[in-house]
């Protein structure tokens, strides 16, 4: 499996598709949340499953973070998982915009709510670009402030060697809310994405 590489054309194409999807998502989110949502330029790489826990640990070492996972699957063998990572207490401000009553204190539910909104809005946009339809599993909190992320990742067994990883940062300035989205498209699904990218490149 480790012989997979992205050509420069494929990477550029994917980058372009993501940029368009991000633009659409940003626009839709702004309307729904009634505030400006800033999405930072994505970072795309192929990553080995063995280095993933380490990479996460490096990036989120100092803070307690919460991790919400949501699976997605579509046609033509496109599937993967979206991980939303929140540094401690970034998410407080969102309770109000999601319609929670002040005594509705389930922070976990607020995180799953906002995660699902961010993930599905962006991925639906991306799916539209590649003429696909995605379905989603319910979002789940994988680790929270109480169970450190690093500890959790060490316990994960990955049944893939290589994954296509896309990092996107979200900022909702008005609510001082930040989070990182990491899309992981593992194993065979990378080849399926590549086929789709090649098809788009051919049509140009």
């Amino acid at each position: 499996m480790n012989d997979i590489t992205l050509t420069e054309d494929q990477r550029d194409c994917l980058q372009e598709l993501i940029n368009v999807a991000m633009g659409q998502a940003s626009d839709k989110l702004a309307r729904y949340l009634q505030t400006f949502v800033h999405l930072q330029v994505p970072y795309i790489e192929l990553i080995d499953s063995t280095v993933l826990p380490e990479r996460f640990a490096e990036t989120y070492a100092e803070e307690g973070v919460s991790l919400v996972s949501q699976g997605f699957y579509g046609e033509k063998g496109i599937l993967g998982e979206s991980l939303l990572i929140y540094k401690s207490h970034d998410a407080h401000g969102i309770a109000e915009i999601l319609g929670y009553e002040p005594d509705d204190v389930s922070e976990v539910e607020q995180l799953t709510d906002i995660s699902s909104i961010l993930t599905t809005t962006f991925l639906n946009g991306l799916a539209e670009q590649i003429d696909n339809q995605l379905a989603y599993s319910a979002p789940r909190v994988v680790s929270s402030m109480e169970t450190p992320l690093e500890q959790h990742l060490q316990q994960l067994s990955f049944n893939w060697d290589l994954a296509l990883k896309v990092d996107i940062s979200y900022q909702v300035v008005d609510f001082s809310f930040n989070c990182d989205m990491v899309l992981l498209i593992p194993g065979e699904a990378i080849k399926n994405i590549q086929k789709v990218l090649d098809q788009i490149l051919d049509e140009f």
Partner: peptide, 8 residues
């Protein structure tokens, strides 16, 4: 948003 939503 034309997306699904969930409650657990």
């Amino acid at each position: 948003l034309n997306t699904p939503a969930f409650s657990s």
